[in-house]
Design a protein around this nucleic acid. Structure first.
Lengths: 230, 230
DNA sequence: ACAGTTTTGTTAATTATATGTCAAAAGTTA
DNA sequence: TAACTTTTGACATATAATTAACAAAACTGT
């Protein structure tokens, strides 16, 4: 076989080819924040460097997988040395797009919405809750942490007057469908969805689902398996 | 090649072989609760039957995948007819081990713990919160929904006096490691872990992690990708 | 500076997952 | 009832993800 091109990897389209942008698999994206967490912990322990082999023992992965995952984004390691933890941590922060602050809003000030609003760890990672909304008049004006619950009527106005691109949706599924449409019209790009519904959105909009009841069902399933296995 | 056994599928060990228990892949387990949710919705809409092809359109999967997933557990469909929704719903409930009630406790009565305790949807699916615990004396005795916040000192006593096998852990990671050890000693089998740590547990113990900050980071990553792609 | 060790990044092999195909079964219609 | 349609379950094929292997690079100790 004759080829004028030594790079015979499949390319879905010519744009990808020229941009040399390989598609990152969902499995890798899934693991990425976990690497970040482990690197954070290692930094806190004052450790400076780590090999893929040592990290693989701690994370219960194969060293091969770690190296291959990281090499999707660049060669961050050094032969004979391993990875510099601070450096790798910062690189992954860049990849995850958490090397800068993100303003966000929360729609729904029920228990879950309030829990998210109060969750100081998010702020530590640069996620700043700018506003929280609810339709229930009896709680509007109430303070959640440092911010006041706003009526839904203010949603469009507040988003449009800001640079907010991210919204957590913590309302029942029926309400969620319409609100999400509204959010997208207002310029929201990323939706952290806690409603029990798969939202249909244009392809430039990003949805991250947190279906807690599905998680609980998986726990239940595996408990059943585990008890059967005895 | 000559084989005395027409079943030439790989078997990891002789026990699996004799029990005819095929290993269910994580990918399937991941999807199972989603099938359940869609079937529930279909029932609510009063629809009686559905083909894998029609369901595949709604769920954005291939019909082939749906049939293969379900056939891991049995042949629930009928040729020329499809699947009876009520029947399949009930079968999946059995598989997920949610055809009976599960008592559970919540450790940590912070915002998240309280949010879970108040989450009526869980009760609807048969998950009953029997107790909620916290170490903060200032909130002990306070009511969350119908139950009172108990001091951590009562943890062992209450679990041992009951048949509770499931616990949600909503406390900081440092505290979580010790508390989980305690829970396991008390007879807890399944842990719904909201702490930012990977817990080390014996292999008969089941952990389902909900790492919210990792989910948020994935959202952030994908938003970065989406904005770059423009 | 040299010999030996560690460890990466890359390519190849293996395993796992998803998709496509089709005979057989059951439904539907005339 | 007979012809035709639908649809499954099983299996075969294709794609994706993980693990293994190893040459080349950089480190370590003498």
């Amino acid at each position: 076989m004759i080829s004028s091109n030594s790079d015979n990897k499949k390319n879905d389209n010519i744009e990808d080819y020229f941009m040399a942008k390989k598609e990152i698999s969902q499995a890798v994206i899934q693991r990425l924040p976990r690497y970040y967490r482990y690197l954070e912990d290692l930094m806190d322990q004052g450790i400076e460097r780590i090999s893929s082999s040592e990290l693989s023992k701690r994370m219960k992965l194969t060293a091969s997988q770690i190296r291959q995952d990281l090499n999707n984004f660049g060669g961050f390691g050094q032969q004979g040395y391993g990875y510099n933890i601070k450096n790798l941590h910062d690189e992954i922060a860049k990849i995850l797009n958490i090397d800068n602050e993100h303003e966000m809003i929360i729609v729904g000030a029920g228990h879950l919405g309030q829990a998210l609003a109060n969750y100081t760890n998010f702020r530590k990672r640069g996620f700043i809750v700018k506003a929280i909304f609810d339709k229930d008049p009896s709680i509007i004006g109430k303070k959640v942490g440092e911010i006041e619950i706003q009526p839904m009527e203010k949603l469009d106005e507040i988003i449009k007057a800001s640079n907010i691109k991210m919204a957590a949706v913590c309302i029942p599924k029926n309400a969620a469908v319409k609100v999400v449409e509204q959010l997208i019209n207002d310029g929201i790009v990323g939706i952290w969805n806690f409603a029990h519904v798969d939202l249909e959105v244009p392809e430039n909009i990003v949805i991250e689902n947190v279906h807690l009841s599905e998680s609980l069902m998986r726990l239940s399933y595996r408990m059943g398996e585990s008890l059967n296995a005895e």
